[in-house]
Design a protein around this nucleic acid. Structure first.
Lengths: 231, 231
DNA sequence: CGCCAATTTGACCGGAATCAACGCAGGTGG
DNA sequence: CCACCTGCGTTGATTCCGGTCAAATTGGCG
């Protein structure tokens, strides 16, 4: 969160005192089920997880990917009952921040409170951008856009550089993000490989030419608000 | 906002002091352009407007519909530069709340601040639900789902009842919400009419059998958080 | 080695886009 | 009053992206 605005020493101390002990979580675990009423918010220390909703037909839609450094259900402080679930896509380490402490923080440290608010607002901006890609872009552009977004976010977290990133997701997971069948994800991925836009082997992904991929994906990082911006 | 939690007399007074004079806005006006850095947030007194993004190919995606009683760019208090625009779909009346006043409010009245925060969090929940319908549902279900959402939200605002609501949107607008061409919106709408799920004449929409429509749309109003819930 | 999950490939199908008209109302001006 | 225009809604013919069904291949791991 420190990358969004400068923090005082006191503020840093308050933040670090917020989180309880760390806990390891295996890939595939449902961290929070839809309909839950958690009394704490979950901070993702490391790993990959995703917000999901399930439809009557059994389909699963992932609505956001969370990476190390994200609060994954901060909004449950305000919206008591979860409208979606959170699943670990890879092995994760998480830590919990009790809602009571978070609420006290917002009252005693308004600036930190605004930073937390900003985090939830950025989640909304990510959702909006995904809506734009879902409604207006081809399957290939959508996949490329997702890779661009993950690269920039992982880079900001110090987990990606030199066009290299790890995406610990199966093609089925990707389909659940993009609203595609895993078969079609595969076809589209092969197409991106043929075009030389992307290399993808296991979880290791390489972007040989960022500008070409970003252009193809119509990716504009503005919505991620990765630069510092006084709040 | 009063419908989300009970407010004290003082809080009601603070809220009502927040808004400047009202201003009428004609249908089609772009209230806020993408990239703007507004110094105030806009409250929609009456009318219909929508958040939108534009793609390189000239496509327009609407990412949320706003109805009377909504703050339409509250998040610009935190996220300075707009990641999207806001357009009036019908004639509207709006009023402005300066960011400076909003910020002071959050510091002096934490409970009201949390209610404002909740409003932005609900925007996120609406975005997530739209992502689910975009990724997992047919065009017909998506259109039905949109009608269900608008009905419940207009009902909460006292603007719909008895299965009757006004939706002042063209089929092109609907296509920009659903990610469809206006031609296909028309075909899908005719299908819903044939099935007796919906009547639609001009802006006047009738839902003859709510349960049947809600089932068809897989609509669960939970995400709208229309009931009161202490924050 | 054998199992199981994930990936890859192929044949075929269907929903939505595209292109092209046509109908219909409200408004405007001669 | 009627000719004309314009935006919106409706319909049809055709194309194509992505889904479905089925199966083969790869690869990690006990």
């Amino acid at each position: 969160m420190a990358r969004r605005d400068t923090l005082s020493a006191l503020e840093r101390e308050v933040l670090s005192g917020l989180l309880g002990p760390e806990r390891a979580v295996a890939a595939g675990t449902v961290l929070i089920a839809p309909g839950d009423r958690p009394s704490f918010s979950t901070f993702l220390v490391s790993g990959f997880c995703a917000r999901f909703s399930v439809t009557a037909a059994g389909g699963r839609q992932l609505t956001e990917i969370n990476v190390a450094g994200d609060f994954i259900d901060l909004h449950s402080l305000l919206m008591r009952q979860m409208d979606h679930g959170v699943v670990a896509l890879a092995d994760c380490v998480v830590a919990f921040a009790p809602h009571a402490d978070l609420r006290r923080l917002t009252e005693q440290h308004p600036h930190l409170g605004r930073l937390l608010w900003l985090e939830t607002v950025i989640d909304g901006a990510i959702h909006r951008q995904w809506l734009v890609t879902m409604g207006q872009q081809s399957a290939a552009s959508r996949l490329a856009h997702l890779v661009c977004e993950l690269y920039r976010r992982l880079e900001a977290a110090g987990l990606a550089s030199d066009g290299q990133l790890k995406i610990p997701m199966t093609q089925t997971d990707l389909g659940d993000v993009l609203g595609l069948t895993p078969i079609h994800v595969n076809r589209v991925l092969m197409e991106l490989r043929r075009e030389g836009l992307i290399e993808w082997k296991g979880t290791q992904v390489t972007i040989p030419d960022w500008d070409r991929l970003a252009t193809f994906a119509e990716f504009d990082p503005n919505y991620l608000r990765l630069q510092s911006d006084a709040v």
